[in-house]
């Protein structure tokens, strides 16, 4: 079937493709070697295929996921490598244990830059999922653990971390708040009871049950 060709530029190389193809597909079609910066191939959940794109006639450079972005005439694409990034926000698994009244002190100690947000909005415009990243940072920096919800759909692509001029690492701050609020504050009653029953030997499995028919 006949489709019109479009010409895109990926990492400086010209590729002719069809407008129905994603950037990743266009690369594969063109015979490019694709062995990194690729993962879930379209679902948009792994955050591996991060690209900067500029559309023809526009001056703005946007971040996107190559698996979700379709080719169009004149599209310029640059893949972002996953740098072996120095993680300056390091914390131990028991970071949030202890006095949960002082949780804001823990957040500030682990993510001190969050107090210095310039409100530039860079994180929000970098997010390929259009999450309210800045709002999440503000809530977390104020000790409001509902910040967790702002990051519900975060895929940890680190684009906001790259964009942030204050080195806040917004997605890692978001995940920190998510993890701590769950680890210290999530105790479903049915699970608590079932664990208790199993540990006391009140619930065991008979492997020799003759029939497995309902």
């Amino acid at each position: 079937m006949q489709t019109s060709q479009v010409r895109i530029t990926v990492n400086g190389c010209v590729i002719d493709t069809e407008p129905t193809r994603s950037i990743l597909e266009a690369m594969i079609d063109a015979g490019e070697t694709l062995i990194d910066g690729v993962g879930c191939m379209g679902q948009g959940v792994c955050g591996s295929c991060r690209v900067l794109v500029r559309r023809q006639g526009e001056s703005e450079v946007l971040s996107a996921l190559a698996c979700e972005t379709r080719a169009c005439e004149g599209l310029q694409v640059a893949f972002l490598d996953h740098l072996p990034m120095h993680r300056h926000h390091v914390y131990a698994m028991d970071d949030w244990n202890g006095d949960s009244w002082r949780i804001l002190e823990r957040i500030n100690a682990t993510f001190p830059e969050a107090q210095h947000c310039r409100h530039c909005g860079g994180c929000d415009s970098a997010c390929p999922k259009h999450l309210q990243v800045h709002k999440g940072v503000m809530l977390a920096a104020a000790g409001d653990l509902s910040a967790a919800e702002c990051f519900d759909e975060c895929i940890m692509c680190d684009l906001c971390t790259i964009a942030c001029p204050e080195l806040i690492s917004p997605n890692h701050l978001g995940l920190y708040v998510r993890r701590l609020s769950t680890a210290i504050g999530f105790r479903p009653a049915d699970l608590v009871l079932r664990l208790h029953q199993i540990e006391r030997g009140e619930m065991v499995i008979d492997q020799d049950v003759a029939s497995t028919q309902p």
Partner: peptide, 17 residues
């Protein structure tokens, strides 16, 4: 380790999954 699950009823403490 910090993984959250959805609840059917109740809150984070004492709710039902």
């Amino acid at each position: 380790r910090g993984m959250r699950f959805d609840l059917a009823e109740g809150g984070a403490i004492g709710g039902k999954l």
